[in-house]
């Protein structure tokens, strides 16, 4: 397998569905951080066929990864400290998603006021249902066209 230099402190995000690495890169705000990031695309995986991996060298307390729980449950978060895997972090669904997904209800105030942040709240944790903070319409993965 392709090898990228070991990191001393940071995260290795493994088992990312192939093609989603850049999406995650943007949603974690990694483009705005001044830290080394390795993006490995289409790595071979026994379980998944192909997968993406992200390696981020940063202070492990500086990054909120909860949005990953929303994007994909199966992503593995390895926390690296002193060059070793210290823990596999369990992710919790965020209470609120700000500008991660868009409300597509044509009757929603966000459809005419474009500068408003798109805010969704976790309405049902068990069923993983998010609703628009303004119109309460449920988010359906296939109606946003956000996965790119």
């Amino acid at each position: 397998m392709l090898n990228v230099g070991k990191i001393e402190e940071g995260f290795v995000l493994d088992h990312i569905p192939a093609g989603k690495a850049m999406y995650i890169y943007h949603h974690l705000g990694l483009d705005k951080l001044d830290c080394p990031v390795a993006i490995i695309k289409n790595a071979r995986s026994n379980a998944m066929g192909k997968k993406d991996i992200l390696k981020v060298e940063c202070d492990i307390d500086s990054l909120n990864l909860d949005v990953l729980a929303f994007i994909d449950h199966n992503i593995t978060v390895n926390v690296i400290k002193d060059g070793e895997i210290k823990e596999k972090r369990k992710l919790e669904l965020p209470r609120e998603l700000v500008d991660v997904i868009k409300c597509t209800n044509p009757r929603c105030i966000t459809s005419i006021e474009h500068e408003l942040p798109h805010i969704f709240y976790l309405a049902d944790e068990e069923r993983e249902i998010y609703r628009c903070k303004y119109c309460d319409v449920k988010y359906e993965e296939n109606d946003a066209g956000e996965w790119n």
Partner: peptide
């Protein structure tokens, strides 16, 4: 925008009732 209008109106009135054709306008 609704946001700007209400920031202005907040300086004039003590309470506001809003009716708007779009869903969620009052939450904004």
């Amino acid at each position: 925008s609704v946001a700007d209008t209400i920031r202005v109106i907040s300086c004039f009135a003590d309470i506001a009732a809003i009716r708007h054709p779009k869903e969620g306008a009052a939450a904004v």
